[in-house]
Design a protein around this nucleic acid. Structure first.
Lengths: 124, 124
DNA sequence: TATAGTGTAATAGTAAAATATAACACTAGG
DNA sequence: CCTAGTGTTATATTTTACTATTACACTATA
């Protein structure tokens, strides 16, 4: 996995696991890979993985079971809320950053539409 | 100014100056505040300001004149390009992050429309 | 009961960002 | 020529993220 060197690795790992859960790659009740395995997979230190997991545990997104592993929460509502939160955070960031550049609401929508259209052009 | 502790301060300062230039708060040819003044205004160390300015200089966004100050480039095309780049970067980030959550193109547009509509509701 | 697999935590060391402080180089104006 | 204002650079220190390594605690199972 490639990391953005402007953002703490543990934070990027946290978001990576968020995504795995939201897209169902990790379903409710699923066991996460062992911390040492995650460390190897992501080529980072165990403590860095643990720091990310620690926050996910605090947020009740995963539940640790000593000697067994870490498990995705069974509470689907928590996951659904998380998904909405992440999406809203993204929209908020786009919106605020473009407004700081004096881009209007309508322009934001137009720019996004253009961007999506252009991506389709390139693909085909 | 409030800084995001997940992102280097010098990098946030760089983007702050980008914005000042793009919205015309700093016009082409304008002199920037003195580095020491910027440091005071942003409650940050001179070296941190200098690191941000150093990158802007490398990018030809500002031009330093020893003993006089730092000046915004006169080249309006450079500024226009910068604006487009920043906007595209923002769109790209939104697009990619939402796609990682399995959100489709159409959903992205709808979510953004909803988000903007809701903001208008709240304001009124 | 021994062992392998798991989470958890502590220690020590490294690297990068940021700070405090000082010094140097240039410009403009009295 | 002197001084104030400016950019530029260097040194030492602190803080935080990350790493390497080790150890401990718990679970399941042969």
């Amino acid at each position: 996995m490639k990391f953005d060197d402007k953002i703490p690795i543990y934070y990027q790992i946290k978001n990576y696991i968020y995504r795995q859960i939201i897209i169902g790659e990790l379903a409710p009740g699923d066991k996460l890979p062992a911390v040492r395995q995650l460390a190897v997979d992501l080529t980072v230190n165990v403590n860095t993985v643990q720091r990310a997991l620690g926050e996910l545990i605090s947020e009740k997104i995963i539940e640790p079971q000593r000697g067994k592993g870490n498990f995705v929460t069974e509470d689907k509502q928590t996951i659904e809320k998380l998904k909405k939160l992440l999406i809203t955070d993204q929209l908020k960031e786009l919106y605020e950053n473009l407004h700081k550049l004096n881009v209007t609401d309508q322009e934001i929508l137009n720019y996004l539409q253009d961007y999506i259209n252009e991506r389709k052009q390139v693909q085909s």
